[in-house]
Design a protein around this nucleic acid. Sequence first.
DNA 1: TAGATTGTTAATCGATTAACAATC
DNA 2: TAGATTGTTAATCGATTAACAATC
Lengths: 212, 212
Amino acid sequence: MPERSPKVPIPSLNRLPLYYRYLLEAREQRLVVVSSEMLGDAAGVPAAQVRKDLGYLGEFGRPGIGYDVMEMQKRLAEQLGLSTQKDVIVVGAGRLGSAISAYRGFATYSMRIAALFDSDRSKIGTRVGGLEVLDVAEVGCFVQERGIQMAILAVPASMAQQVADALSQAGIAAILNFAPVKLDLPSSVVVSNEDLAARLATLSFRMIHRQE
Amino acid sequence: MPERSPKVPIPSLNRLPLYYRYLLEAREQRLVVVSSEMLGDAAGVPAAQVRKDLGYLGEFGRPGIGYDVMEMQKRLAEQLGLSTQKDVIVVGAGRLGSAISAYRGFATYSMRIAALFDSDRSKIGTRVGGLEVLDVAEVGCFVQERGIQMAILAVPASMAQQVADALSQAGIAAILNFAPVKLDLPSSVVVSNEDLAARLATLSFRMIHRQE
DNA sequence: TAGATTGTTAATCGATTAACAATC
DNA sequence: TAGATTGTTAATCGATTAACAATC
């Protein structure tokens, strides 16, 4: 449970997981303390930025010394809500949904894919990377019974709103949406949109205009 | 070829593809003109923001009327570098790389996956969604011969820097990196990092702190 | 102690929002 | 004309960077 609810700027917030990842690496390398400069190098930002970002969450380090790796990692985990393992579900067992379900990297942040859902009869019951594909009609019950808080949406654009509504009604708290549509949901549901194609288009623009 | 190289704020830049997508939809619905408010609704931003964003690229609309769908779509395509089809390669034929290679959505932005590479002997030569998996040892030649500008990196973290170096040396101009590492590359290469697990961690934080 | 490094304040820079004259 | 809507300027808000006293 986090001690308080700081108001953290969105860009800072996006950097926190990078700091966290660096701390895990530092721990493996048996580092005891790290400096804001080391953290900055890992995340690609200046040391001052790191200190500012961490400042939003409280006091982490000791002047003249740096940041204690173990302690900081634990406190960051608390703040990010990763101190206990989190169960996440994936809806959509197409290529993308299946790939996400099988992705190992979530473990870094103590996240686990708990179940995978689809509406396609020919997929339901099959196994994808150690998970049985469940019927999306049951996703609401599953969320409620298991107290699932987060879902990853990897369904076709035409289905996304409908599935999101079902998840929302079941009480989901956060959705990572891969469908290229703007979801219309109550403000109680936190949504993060990831549009791979749009990403590539933005990259194309930056490339052409040699931006940043 | 874009007429000029405007300095566009990064957040604005991320919205341009959303406007573009809306214009494609509007076109299908036979809309002739759209307003900044309609564009804003589609992208989830205020109308004033839309006008500001478009203002960076020149004059698109007509006061009292709105934006001509066809004309604006064409001009945005030019600016985003999408007026001619772009060939993109994917390196890494694991689950994620394969899913990306087969993803249909890139067509929206005139992007095409031209080839898929891997280092695994057992994968090379097999077919993934209509593409033959090629040997990553040949990726440099391929990039040079075909004049490929953009690459998607979906290899394990431990391989990412090495592959990125090869791409960079072959003259690649932009990389969309899915490996959870900060790539160290010459500033001539534009890099965009997409860390799915970090995304989920950020979402977790926002959920817990009910941010935004 | 001297050197290192934090946390925080102040200064700068950048992005968003509001307002409105110009235009259709 | 009157109503609608742009492009742009000015005002506000937010984020980054720089600087430095406090601390180890």
